[in-house]
Write a protein that binds this DNA or RNA. Structure first.
Length: 804
RNA sequence: GCCGCCUUGGCGGAAUUGGCAGACGCACGCGACUCAAAAUCGCGCGGUUUAUCCAUGCCGGUUCAAGUCCGGCAGGCGGCACCA
């Protein structure tokens, strides 16, 4: 058969569509399987080869599952709110809605051309009002349960995008959208209390099948640490203490080594006692300088510590009773712990560096290092520590100190997380309006559920205000409303939700995409959830993957969803690099357009190539020669129709066929797509050598290849008179007996080195093997003048003689 | 600095539980077909010799046997990062 991909690809795409071959059936009796890939942001650039690779894995699994008799849900939608569309809208003065719809159509067209088996009847878009109605509804549930709060704190702010960013969106001190430096500003913003779910997010990881690397990354992002909160008394020198200054420490057992305290530049105690501080001007200047630094600058200058001693105030070490100085320094962060620390210069390098610069005492309390040179952070015997002296185990000394602190009411055990609450509002237009109303009498009130969706109004100008206000703030008809509680005049919240809101629950909507009475029907959720297999990018591990687990756990706690975790299994794909081995980027000019590959070689070649090119999780460079290699393989597959002339099965070939069924079946499950395709290449080499095969051989072959190259295999199936659609046919099964060889070629070693081979029946015993090996001159010459002292025989694997 | 992962031919990679290292593909070389080229097909392809050694980043260990397990070192990738 001649392989005319240009003709056959659209043909089968139409036939699958007409047959509704990929439609998931609610409540069907077949076992369900829910496969999910991260839905894309519909950018103007269209699909990237990375999208193709990300979708192809679950696509192959989904197609195999259908053939194995599962009721498969493999949906697709669009994460269509976001900044790029809005920025483009500002530039071209077009409504982001129009741009987004156009891009969605473009993406869908491309996805169809590649032949993905999505169930389009469940398509969603997060920017559609019938979808974001329920995003707003979930937000109101969070609000009702006290998980939404407003606070004025230091926030991450991107001056370029003019938005407040969450901690997750400003990793490494860079804006996630434009990569410019983030600054810290005090701002009044909405937060979601994700930290309340920190332990649940942590513990839930033990119940899901995620790769260890993903679990590790989430664990370190959550950053749970156990320690103690300790109160130091603040004094101006008079007999009465002014106040308490609380610190957090993981090493409360080093309290005897505390020689000073440091507070963050923004610490509120400074303002409270500014009258007592005699060098207030100096302190204020330091604080202002710190505020000007970007997050990057503030965290990079590690060695040279800066700070100012606070004159007029001192602290009392609660365990020694000694008065110690207090400093303000920007190496202490307001966002972690209490924004104040007890400094133990002998055993913390940062405190050590600071003490050396400012000439503060350094007192050793753990033996083992040389504190004249550097801080000692290892373990050792406690010294200079009164009640702890002599203890050598960190656990014991911390436990003992904790008991003392609690007895004396100085401090208590505590837990801290690096993860912070989720800054949840954006001062932008193209997002879900936050459904809250500010009433002068009632405070903040949620929009009544009956009034949802709170639709995004049309505006003239999408530009964010220089005053940090959302474009929505300029629309009086939107802003002015009545309070749902008292009926009085009130004003709407004008900020919108962040990019990650819509994607935090979209997998639930796919279970029941067109419901307008609920976000999804409970019975349908019970039927489909959890997602059995979710594939996506590593870059979402501490954003989308964390946020969506949080929302889902919240919904579970409030009995809105049937499972505690949303995703039973998560996998990720490795990056496709440019042909030059560098990350693909427009500026480097090394971007591969997948639709160009479809045009040149066909969708089947593209699909098979991205899975064959490397291990699925590994980053690997694109190779045009490699693509042509896969195309050559598919050309040879098309040619198989010409040699499918044999009437009777060749037993040798039959054994190879069954081995390949086993290997391909297993390899797809293990996501080892490259070796699954390699096994099919090996089989076709065997077919070619044999010269002729049976029609049954060919049917098995195209079934195994079908998930990778669905169009070509359907065409072959039709050509040889197959009934119905191949995509609905049954996955081949193998006979374990037929995968076993009757004769095994076994390696024979002498002293661990391979010296020859012997052919043996599969059931051969050790004696048979030894006899055969001794008869082989290539092997027995190594026995000359030596004694065989030991024989190791592993059936079917190896025979090893130890000689002396 | 801390945590995690990786290192195999000219290249991408295989080796699922410790059992014949280099499957499969690419590139390359030779040959067939062709006036010629492309395409296609066939053969070869870690190094070294001519049957022997050396080869899975480097050094050491465990084992009859190590790419695989253990210890140390080097290089690379990813994540976090003045986190108290």
């Amino acid at each position: 058969m001649k392989y005319n991909f240009k003709k056959i690809e659209p043909k089968w795409q139409t036939k699958w569509n007409e047959a509704q071959a990929f439609k998931a059936v609610d409540f069907d009796k077949r076992p369900k399987w829910y496969g999910l890939v991260e839905f894309p942001y519909p950018s103007g650039a269209g699909m990237h080869v990375g999208h193709i690779k990300a979708y192809s894995s679950v696509e192959v699994l989904a197609r195999k599952r259908r053939m194995q008799g599962y009721n498969v849900l493999f949906p697709m939608g669009f994460d269509s709110f976001g900044l790029p569309a809005e920025n483009y809208a500002i530039k071209t003065n077009t409504h982001p809605h129009l741009i987004t719809e156009k891009n969605i159509e473009h993406f869908k067209d491309q996805m169809r051309q590649v032949g993905f088996s999505f169930d389009w009847s469940r398509e969603i878009a997060t920017s559609h009002a019938d979808y974001y109605k329920w995003t707003q509804w979930i937000f109101l549930q969070l609000f009702d349960k006290g998980l939404v709060f407003r606070a004025k704190t230091l926030v991450n702010y991107c001056p370029h995008c003019k938005v407040v960013l969450s901690n997750e969106d400003s990793q490494g001190g860079k804006c996630d959208i434009c990569h410019s430096d983030v600054v810290q500003l005090p701002k009044d913003v909405w937060y979601l209390r994700i930290t309340q779910y920190a332990d649940k997010l942590l513990n839930g990881l033990s119940d899901v099948d995620y790769p260890e690397s993903i679990k590790q990354q989430q664990v370190s992002w959550i950053g749970r640490s156990t320690g103690a909160f300790v109160n130091f008394e603040l004094t101006d020198g008079s007999a009465e203490a002014l106040d308490k200054l609380e610190i957090y420490t993981t090493r409360c057992d080093t309290l005897y080594g505390v020689t000073f305290m440091v507070v963050a530049p923004e610490h509120p105690a400074l303002d409270k006692y500014k009258d007592k501080i005699t060098n207030w001007d100096e302190v204020l200047k330091y604080r202002e300088d710190a505020a000007k630094k970007t997050e990057f600058q503030r965290t990079q200058l590690v060695k040279d510590k800066t700070g100012v001693k606070i004159e007029g105030l001192k602290a009392t070490n609660p365990i020694t009773g000694k008065q110690i100085p207090i400093f303000i320094a920007d190496y202490v962060m307001m966002g972690y712990g209490t924004g104040a620390i007890m400094a133990v210069p002998a055993h913390d390098q940062r405190d050590y560096d600071f003490a050396k610069t400012f000439g503060v005492d350094i007192v050793e309390v753990i033996k083992g290092g040389d504190i004249s040179k550097e801080a000692y952070t290892g373990d050792g015997e406690m010294v200079n520590s009164d009640i702890l002296n002599g203890l050598t185990n960190k656990k014991d000394s911390i436990a003992k100190m904790l008991t003392v602190l609690e007895e004396r009411g100085i401090g208590h055990k505590g837990v801290q997380y690096k993860m912070k609450d989720w800054a949840f509002n954006r001062q932008r237009y193209w997002g879900e309006p936050i459904p809250l109303v500010h009433c002068p009498k009632c405070g903040t009130v949620g929009v009544p559920v009956e009034e949802l969706p709170l639709t995004l109004p049309d505006v003239e100008n999408f530009e964010p205000g220089t005053d940090g206000q959302s474009p929505l703030a300029k629309i009086d008809s939107f802003v002015n409303c009545t309070c749902p509680k008292c009926g009085g005049a009130a004003k709407r919240e004008t900020d919108t939700m962040p990019q990650w809101a819509g994607s935090s629950w979209y997998f639930l909507r796919f279970c029941d995409a067109n419901n307008d009475a609920a976000f999804a029907d409970q019975d349908k959720l019970k039927y489909w959830m959890p997602v059995d297999h979710y594939n996506g990018g590593m870059e979402h591990v501490t954003r989308h993957l964390l946020y969506s687990r949080f929302w889902h756990q919240f919904l579970y706690d409030n009995k809105f969803v049937p499972t505690p975790e949303p995703y039973a299994k998560r996998t990720y794909q490795g990056l496709i690099l440019g042909p030059d081995g560098e990350k693909m980027s427009k500026s480097k000019g090394n971007v591969i357009d997948p639709l160009n590959i479809v045009d040149l070689y066909g969708a089947d070649t593209l699909r098979a190539y991205v899975l064959f090119m490397s291990d699925y999780t590994a980053a690997a460079p694109w190779s045009d020669e490699g693509v042509r290699g896969v195309k050559r393989f598919l050309d040879r597959v098309a040619g198989l129709t010409d040699i499918a002339t044999l009437e009777k099965e060749d037993p040798q070939l039959e054994s190879k066929l069954h081995k390949t069924i086993k290997k391909v079946t297993d390899d797809i499950e293990r996501m080892k797509f490259n070796t699954a395709i390699a096994a099919l290449m090996t089989l076709i080499n065997d077919f070619t050598k044999a010269g002729a095969i049976t029609k049954e051989d060919l049917v098995v072959f195209i079934k195994l290849l079908h998930p990778f190259a669905p169009h070509l295999t359907e065409e072959i199936y039709e050509e040889i008179g197959g009934e119905g659609l191949l995509t609905l046919a049954k996955w081949p099964e193998y006979d374990e007996e037929k995968t076993k060889d009757a004769v095994i070629n076994m390696g024979v070693q002498v002293n661990g080195k391979v010296r020859g081979n012997v052919d043996l029946p599969a059931e051969a015993t050790q004696d048979d093997a030894v006899e055969a090996a001794k008869a082989n001159p290539a092997i027995n010459k190594f026995f000359e003048g030596k004694n065989i002292v030991k024989v190791i025989f592993v059936k079917g694997k190896i025979l090893n003689f130890v000689v002396k």
